[in-house]
């Protein structure tokens, strides 16, 4: 009885080991199953998903106009204090004073890319860009001013 058990143990062990080797052997002979993406080489074809959160950007149209009203909803919504909006008073043509953004400061190094600022924005002024490769040598480079110099707010955005 003992002998029978002894040899059946050996038989089952060898069989289970060979099953495993069959699987790795299968992948060794089927090189078309390789999943590796050769990253720096496939930059040209690499496309991130539409909703991928890379960094916050402020789109401008061809007249250098953005949609940010300076309401600071994003600044309040941000859990990390990533966004800082500096506003200025602008005197319009009809003599009224209006709040406008002076600079929209975005600290990329603090950002957790949680998308809450984008959701909070009432005028769709900021969006997530699909960029990656954000590594830089100087931390200061990660502090970004999102509005272009001399940019204006788009007509009709309140």
């Amino acid at each position: 009885m003992f002998i029978k058990e002894y040899f059946s143990t050996i038989y089952r062990s060898i069989k289970s080991l060979l099953t495993g080797m069959k699987l790795t052997g299968y992948y060794f002979t089927h090189l078309n199953k390789i999943k590796t993406e050769e990253y720096p080489d496939n930059r040209a074809t690499l496309k991130m998903a539409d909703r991928f959160r890379g960094e916050v950007v402020m789109p401008h149209n061809e007249n250098n106009e953005h949609r940010c009203t300076g309401c600071q909803a994003c600044e309040i919504a941000c859990p990390n204090g990533t966004i800082k909006i500096i506003t200025k008073q602008e005197i319009l043509a009809d003599g009224k004073k209006k709040k406008r953004i002076d600079s929209f400061i975005y600290h990329h190094d603090l950002c957790t890319l949680c998308n809450l600022c984008i959701v909070a924005c009432p005028s769709d002024a900021i969006v997530m860009a699909q960029t990656f490769e954000h590594a830089v040598y100087d931390k200061k480079l990660l502090k970004k001013i999102l509005n272009n110099p001399d940019s204006k707010i788009m007509e009709g955005v309140e």
Partner: peptide
């Protein structure tokens, strides 16, 4: 990534 925009910390 496609639906939520992130792979690990989806929020």
């Amino acid at each position: 990534e496609e639906t939520c925009g992130a792979r690990l910390t989806m929020n």
